[in-house]
Simulated assay, not measured.
Amino acid sequence: MALIDPFNRKIEYVRVSVTDKCNYRCGYCMPEQGVHPEGEHTEYLSYDELARIIKAFVNLGVTKVRITGGEPLVRKNLPTLIAQINEFEGLQDIALSTNAHHLAREALALKEAGITRANISIDSLKPERFKNITRGGDLSKVLAGVDRALEVGMTPIKFNMVVMKGTNDDEIEAMVDYGLEKGVEVRFIETMPIGPAGVSMMNQHYAAEKILARVRAHVGQDLIPSQGKTHDGPSRNFVIAGTNTRIGVISAVSQHFCETCNRVRLTARGVLALCLGQEDSVDLRTPLRAGISDEELQQLIVDAMLKKPEKHFFNENVHNIEFRQMVSLGG
């Protein structure tokens, strides 16, 4: 069996959320009060359950897993899960998405367990602005996490900057310079209308082509289109001429990339989300806990791929996905 959706796209990549809790409250991702009402009990999949589902995906041809959240490093003992799935034959790549607040503390253990590279969310290089965007974040801890990840050999490291008009768009050039200084790829991301938080930010949308024009003007050199690699995902990438630094843009709204989508998302509570911008999903936790066999689990996943839609509809109707939160989907 292999994972082929109705549009002949082969699914080789799963983003796995280990929690939808986060120590930050970025406005485009999460409501200020958090995701859950005060006192709500949230039952996440155990690491063994997550590993069992990941193993089923790997048996079906998935080669890449990205560990996400919320903020994955707020869940305790994450390296134990990484070490467990790192043993799966056929799994070639285990990556991490993080806000890096705890990365200085965790980087070595994560690297030794099997994390090879990380995407780090960083929307400003100005401490007070960063604190405002994240509603309390500490830029110094994030920068320390960046340095520690580079020190222990996580590579490549990518910076993810969500560009928001009137909030941080004046820092596009500064982020390019920081990427050049650290030898790190910088990816600029358009705001996306996912959940009430995301929809509320769409008046700050800043198109990818405008970002690229700013970068070209700043570096005073050509941006050379970069040949895609398996870990590039939806990013369109360019190399700054005369350097090894890459610039990427993720243009989910202004120029979607649905025709090449090769991924699905598993939430921390066992929901298999088939599209970032559509409601289609399948509950895996209930049958898993009801005693489903490994073979039945794999067949359930294969069948779920038949529900994967052709594309999202961000441009047509930004309100059609207010039912879910970006923080619960893992980006």
Results as ranks from 00 to 15, higher is better:
H231T: 15
T116M: 14
E71W: 01
T116H: 15
R285N: 12
S121H: 10
V62L: 06
R75P: 07
R75C: 01
Q299N: 12
G330S: 06
V264A: 09
T116K: 15
Q299H: 05
Y24I: 04
I11K: 08
G39K: 07
K126F: 11
R324T: 12
S200I: 00
E89Q: 13
T80A: 13
D303Y: 00
L223E: 01
K182P: 08
V142K: 10
I240P: 05
I53Y: 05
I247R: 02
A213W: 03
A104V: 13
T42N: 14
N59Y: 14
R9H: 07
V162M: 02
E209A: 14
C258L: 03
F57E: 11
A100E: 13
S293F: 00
I250H: 01
M30Q: 02
V239A: 06
H218N: 10
I301F: 04
K165M: 05
P234N: 05
N160T: 07
M326P: 08
E310R: 12
K307S: 10
I82L: 09
E40P: 03
A2Q: 15
A118K: 09
T19L: 03
S121I: 05
G220C: 07
M161L: 00
N160R: 09
L108G: 07
Q325W: 02
E209W: 12
A197R: 04
D222C: 10
R246I: 06
K182S: 05
S281W: 03
L125M: 06
E112M: 14
R105K: 14
G136D: 08
I321P: 07
I53S: 11
S254I: 06
V249D: 09
D170P: 10
V249F: 05
G331K: 08
S226I: 11
F7D: 12
S17E: 02
I122H: 14
M201R: 04
G183V: 01
G270V: 04
R236H: 07
E12W: 11
S254V: 08
K76F: 08
G330W: 04
M30E: 02
P196M: 02
A174N: 09
L91W: 10
K21E: 04
G27V: 02
E295I: 13
E151F: 08
S293A: 02
D177C: 01
R269C: 10
L329W: 03
F238N: 03
G195C: 00
A51L: 06
N59D: 15
H41E: 15
T68W: 02
L180W: 05
L125C: 08
T116Y: 14
